[in-house]
Amino acid sequence: MAITAALVRELREETGSGMMDCKKALVATNGDKEAAIEWLRKKGLATAEKKSGRIASEGLSMIVVSEDAKKGVAVEVNSETDFVAQNEKFRNYVKTVADQALDTKAADIDAFLAETSKADPTKTVAEYNASMIAVIGENLKIRRFQQLEEQNGFVTGYTHMNGKIVVLVDVESDVDNEAVREMGKNIAMQIAALNPKYTSDAEVPQDYKDHEIAILTEQTKNDPKMAGKPEKVISGAVMGRLKKELKEICLLDQEYVKAEDGKQSVAQYVASVAKAQNAKINIKGFVRFETGEGLEKKNEDFAAEVAAQLQK
């Protein structure tokens, strides 16, 4: 029997299953819709996926750090509403995801979803997520995770607005005491507040710098105040503007927000703590998740979507 877009749509409407799962079910059952329904039920998809078409752009980000503080992970799990995001059952589920992500060897989210769930070894992480959709009553999506590990120091973190923003910081240090830990926490709060893109200027890709230089050069040449100025002067102005821009996006070059005089950079703050504690300290990297960042709501043409998938 031919697997048509109309047949896929019928199955999706009857079971609430995802479009691709409906297609797989129909292919597996040679287009027999009733058999496909049974196939989906056996896979545990007919109930959970009924909510898969709903937009999940709320949710919760969470960090977990190992007891020895040598390793940490940040995860984001999305839900449909902020109300559910604050539900204890949902938060406990996100903690389960984070605990698994702390020790995972998966290199990406697809591999993570495919591994065996520690919460229920009879299911994969994706299948366990599907079962939680049925329990919680909203579409849930494990969006991302990222680990940090530091054997010559520690990993620390900060949670802002009850999980709207989470930060992990990799602190390399030959001294690990209360003062150095407090510094790490302060750096995490800085990252949460000012959202740097890089740790230092050295991390900024050269193609990004080249692109900005090209734009700033045109802006400078079009500035009436720079009319008739020699190339050397224009070049100097461009590099000055670039330095100012990089200062805003590079953590160590940012002004330290808790500095009393407002004139201390993050790098200078770290150096002052290192000197006071007779330590060698290096901020090696960080992770910052803001729940829902980059997610957009879409209105898609279902028929066109099904037709495109059937041609694959």
Results as ranks from 00 to 15, higher is better:
L216Q: 13
E76D: 00
G31P: 00
Q311R: 14
M20V: 14
Y128T: 02
N152I: 04
S235F: 04
E245L: 12
F83D: 04
K50N: 14
D210F: 06
G157C: 10
T4K: 04
K258S: 12
I234G: 03
E248M: 13
Q151R: 11
A101W: 00
N139H: 02
E58K: 11
K24A: 10
L102V: 06
K123E: 05
V238D: 01
I213W: 03
E138M: 08
I213C: 04
Y158Q: 03
A69K: 13
A98K: 02
M161F: 11
M189E: 07
V73P: 03
A134N: 06
E293R: 10
D223S: 08
Q268R: 12
I55W: 09
K141P: 00
Y208I: 15
G240F: 09
V167G: 01
L246S: 03
V175Q: 11
C22G: 05
A106N: 11
E13M: 13
K43N: 12
L194A: 15
E178L: 05
A48Q: 02
V287A: 04
S57K: 13
N78L: 03
A111S: 15
M132V: 06
E34K: 10
L216M: 15
R143Q: 13
K244V: 13
F145V: 00
D108N: 15
A192H: 02
T291E: 05
I136N: 02
A271T: 10
P121C: 12
V73T: 05
E34W: 04
A25T: 10
K197E: 14
D21V: 03
D108I: 09
N299V: 14
S57M: 10
N78H: 02
K263W: 08
V73I: 12
E248N: 14
E58N: 11
I283P: 01
G262L: 01
K232C: 01
D223W: 11
K89I: 09
K229G: 02
E296N: 10
